[in-house]
Structures are given as structure tokens and as C-alpha cells.
Design a protein around this nucleic acid. Structure first.
Lengths: 156, 156
DNA sequence: TATTGTTATACTCTATAACTATA
DNA sequence: TATAGTTATAGAGTATAACAATA
């Protein structure tokens, strides 16, 4: 008899296990670019909505404004993000990606594609599409924001 | 044009999103039983391998031995787990579930089944089996231990 | 007075390593 | 001496709230 198998696990628990593993492997890959997953999420959001304020960014990512400060400090000191005072309201900073930041994000997308291909290793093309289709339906049902890792949000 | 969709996300990122969400929802459910997911993992492991020592438990779950102490302290004070000195080596404690602990775990399984059913809400029976099949193949490929949440292990 | 960004403080959580009792 | 369990301590990380500049 087989020692133990995944036979009894339902989809929800398998999803938890695989999701955690996928997140860990992605974290290892972007670590090669000197980035953490939260930093990737922040860079991505700034790329999508250029000119975002730090408060807006905190809201989008579910981070505390005080934490956004230290993150942006780090990314700015590395030349990936720029802070420019808003002309309309001089209290706020408008955040944008620098050229260097955009170039780095292009590398992140490459890394993400490799990660995705490797992670789905044992499945053929048709099976991957089948899987992606089922997962998309679940994601829409659970109102998951495309592209945003829910781990950045906290409950409440 | 649609505002944004999951169309471009590959399976690996969808897995990360859905896995995180599933873990959050499961945590909320077992909170009604006054348990956290790590506590559930510990109770489950003691149930599977009755008589386990705290060191062995730390190894299985990837937890620090010092942390196991406080967890077992809590579970023992709630009458869910019993510590009995080993006759062969009086340094070690043999951990077992009490009747109350086993009864609570039965409730956990019920809660887990409800969680699974609700989480897969939009999928019909055939689609759930299809999804579970694909996920099991990925789980086996990635050497995930059946029943053990990988989040309890740390890297290294 | 309210809000943006920032800083400081207090709090929790974790890991490391000392300690005891058995072997 | 080595190991199981425990306890204590130091470090990291997080949240809360006080602060300065602008509205």
C-alpha cells in the first residue's frame, strides 16, 4: 500500500500548499534581482499607476503609510523610483519608475515567466490552459485583484 | 474593453493568489474553534504519529524546539494534548491527543470540508475533480508532504 | 482643522543561546 | 559528553501615535 498520498486532500488545501510553495520559489528567483515580493508589488503598482501618492500606494497594497516610507526610501536610494513634489498639492509626492526601475521590471517579468513555466513542469500545454481556466474562474469568484498579491493586504 | 482581467496571469501566480486567500479563509474558520492554522498542524501531526517527542515534532513541522514548548504548553493547558514521560528515556515527553483533542480535530475536519466546498463554489463536481487531479500532479512533482502546510517549514 | 509624509516609541514576535535533568 | 526540554535574552520586525509642513 502507498505510504501516504494527496488522494484525500481537497482542492482548497492543495491550493494552500501549492500557493505557498509557488510564492517561496518566486521569492527565491527575484532575490537574484535583489528584490523581495513586496518590493515587486510596489514597483508594479507604481508602474501601472504612475504619479501615485504614498497614501494611495498604501491603500492599494494594504500597507501602513509609515511602512511605505521606508520602502520608497530604499527603492529611491537604489535609483528605481523617483519622488517629485506635486504642483497642485505640495504635501504629496508623485511616485514614478525611473528608466532603471522600468528596465528592472522587464527583468522581473522574464523571471516570472520562467518561474511559471518551471512550476507547471509536469503539465503539457493543454493541461496548463485547463488549469489556468479553472483558477481564473475561482479568482474572479473570490474577487481577487489581478496582479496584486493578497498577502500584502491585511484583514479588516 | 474590460478594465482588467486575470487573462494574462499564468497558473503559478494565480496559485499564489488563491492559495493565500484559501489559507486566510481557513484561518478564519478554525478561529471559531479557538485554533490557529499552526495549532491545527500540530494537533494533526500528534494525531497521526501518537507518542511523538517534542524534538521530533519540531523536526516534522520545521518549528524551533523552543517554540514547540509554548505551543504544547497552551494545548496542554486546554486539555487537548497530554505529555507523558517516556519509560525508556525519561528526558523525553511522549505527546498524545486527549479525547477532547480528538473530538476537536473531528470538528476541524468538518470545518475543513465546508471550507473546501465553499471555496470551490463556482465549480461543479466534475470540474472540482479535474482541478484536484491537476493540483495533485503538481503537488507530487514538487514533493509536497500530504497534509503538511509548507508554511510551517522555513528555508534551508 | 484636516491631511501628507515622516519619525519615534512601544509592542510583539522570533531566534539564539544559556540552563537542568537525564543519558 | 551529548541530548530533551525549558527558560532567558537580545534582535528584528510591526503597529500606534506623535510631529512638521501644507492645505
Amino acid at each position: 500500500m502507498p505510504s501516504q498520498s494527496h488522494a484525500k486532500s481537497g482542492p482548497a488545501f492543495l491550493l494552500t500548499q501549492l500557493g505557498t510553495r509557488a510564492a517561496m520559489l518566486f521569492a527565491e528567483r527575484v532575490a537574484a534581482l535583489d528584490l523581495t515580493p513586496p518590493q515587486v508589488g510596489m514597483l508594479r503598482m507604481i508602474g501601472v499607476e504612475a504619479g501615485l501618492s504614498q497614501q494611495q500606494l498604501a491603500g492599494r497594497l494594504g500597507m501602513l503609510p509609515s511602512k511605505v516610507v521606508s520602502f520608497v526610501d530604499e527603492l529611491e536610494s537604489r535609483g528605481l523610483v523617483a519622488r517629485t513634489r506635486s504642483a497642485r498639492d505640495r504635501r504629496v509626492y508623485e511616485l514614478t519608475l525611473t528608466d532603471k526601475g522600468e528596465e528592472l521590471m522587464r527583468q522581473v517579468w522574464e523571471v516570472a515567466a520562467e518561474h511559471d513555466a518551471d512550476f507547471c513542469g509536469p503539465l503539457d500545454t493543454a493541461e496548463r490552459e485547463q488549469l489556468a481556466g479553472l483558477l481564473r474562474r475561482l479568482a474572479e469568484h473570490h474577487d481577487l485583484t489581478p496582479g496584486v498579491h493578497p498577502g500584502y493586504r491585511h484583514l479588516g
